[in-house]
Design a protein around this nucleic acid. Sequence first.
DNA 1: ACAGTGACAACAT
DNA 2: TATGTTGCCACTG
Length: 123
Amino acid sequence: MNTPNFYEQVYRLVRQIPYGKVTSYGRIAQMLGAPRAARAVGYALQALKDKQESPSYREVPWHRVINHAGRISISNREFDAEEQAIRLRAEGIPVDENLHIPLEHYLWEGLNFFEIDQLLANS
DNA sequence: ACAGTGACAACAT
DNA sequence: TATGTTGCCACTG
């Protein structure tokens, strides 16, 4: 699916992840109708760093997005990975020394099709 | 217009 | 299991 505002859609959806829950890049992509755009989702979140001046972007809980294996996926950027771990722990989510989160307890169920449509309706 | 880039994911050794 | 490889896709200069 080739949507014009893919990043914005990612941000909208990520904002729906409840406090204390996490989901994966792939699941975000799938919910947006682009099941193979997981990398693009990660890219979208990285792009948030350049938009921190804007409050609406600062509200995006990017730290609640991890990879499909249940791990923080910023391994080569130690500083950012640590910040993500700190933010997750602050929400009561356990992150072990290998940056792993037990998905069976903290995975967000996600939105259904109707909810997605509604969320993306008013652009 | 197009080749390069990543905070992914699935598959293959 | 643990790495390595390959496909992917939106965005960028």
